[in-house]
Amino acid sequence: NQASVVANQLIPISTALTLVMMRSEVVTPVGIPAEDIPRLVSMTVNRAVPLGTTLMPDMVKGYA
């Protein structure tokens, strides 16, 4: 089972991601792979991401 990136807090729309905002967790459905966390830092989300939500590729500008 692959770990995915999960929001560690509410991430408001257009917020630049930082390490403290994300954690890795094995979830269903599978989202962005946890090993991509370093790549996600400073990318922005294009929607509000509630606490505990799995980050999907279409939620992060420039990721997909």
Rank of each mutant, 00 (worst) to 15 (best):
N1E: 15
N1M: 15
N1T: 15
Q2K: 07
Q2E: 15
Q2F: 12
A3L: 10
A3W: 06
A3Y: 08
S4Q: 01
V5L: 03
V5N: 03
V5K: 01
V5P: 02
V5E: 01
V5H: 00
V6I: 12
V6E: 01
V6F: 00
A7N: 01
A7F: 03
A7D: 01
N8P: 03
N8V: 11
N8D: 11
N8I: 05
Q9R: 13
Q9A: 13
Q9L: 09
Q9E: 12
Q9C: 07
L10H: 13
L10C: 14
L10Q: 14
L10D: 15
L10I: 12
L10P: 13
I11K: 01
I11N: 00
I11P: 01
P12G: 06
P12S: 06
P12C: 07
I13L: 10
I13C: 15
I13Y: 10
I13P: 12
I13K: 15
S14G: 15
T15C: 06
A16H: 14
L17T: 00
L17R: 00
L17W: 02
T18P: 00
T18Y: 03
L19T: 09
L19E: 10
L19H: 10
L19S: 11
L19V: 10
V20P: 12
V20Q: 15
V20I: 13
M21C: 04
M21I: 03
M21E: 03
M22G: 01
M22D: 02
M22W: 03
R23Y: 05
R23H: 05
S24L: 05
S24M: 08
S24N: 05
S24R: 07
S24W: 08
V26R: 04
V26D: 15
V27M: 07
V27Q: 05
V27N: 03
T28S: 11
T28F: 09
P29W: 04
P29V: 06
P29L: 04
P29T: 07
P29G: 03
V30R: 05
V30K: 07
V30Y: 08
V30E: 15
V30G: 07
V30T: 10
G31H: 01
G31R: 02
I32E: 02
I32L: 06
I32P: 00
P33G: 05
A34S: 13
E35S: 09
E35W: 10
E35G: 08
D36T: 06
D36V: 08
D36C: 15
D36W: 08
I37P: 00
I37L: 12
I37W: 03
I37H: 02
I37E: 00
P38G: 11
R39I: 09
R39G: 09
L40S: 00
L40K: 00
L40F: 02
V41L: 12
V41R: 05
V41W: 00
S42E: 11
S42A: 13
S42R: 11
S42Q: 09
M43V: 04
M43F: 15
M43P: 01
T44S: 11
T44L: 13
V45T: 13
V45S: 05
V45I: 07
N46M: 11
N46S: 13
R47T: 12
R47A: 11
R47Y: 08
R47K: 11
R47N: 08
A48T: 15
A48W: 08
A48K: 10
A48Q: 14
A48L: 14
V49R: 00
V49C: 06
P50I: 06
P50M: 10
P50F: 06
L51K: 13
L51G: 13
L51H: 14
L51R: 08
G52F: 04
G52K: 04
T53K: 08
T53S: 10
T53Y: 10
T53W: 13
T54P: 07
T54H: 02
L55C: 03
L55W: 02
L55R: 01
M56E: 09
M56G: 05
M56L: 09
P57I: 06
P57G: 06
P57L: 04
P57R: 08
P57A: 15
P57H: 07
D58R: 06
D58T: 10
D58S: 11
D58L: 10
D58P: 14
D58W: 11
M59K: 01
M59G: 02
V60R: 00
V60K: 01
V60L: 09
V60M: 05
K61P: 15
K61L: 15
K61R: 12
G62E: 09
G62R: 06
G62T: 04
Y63C: 04
Y63A: 04
Y63N: 04
Y63T: 03
A64F: 05
A64C: 15
A64S: 10
A64Q: 15
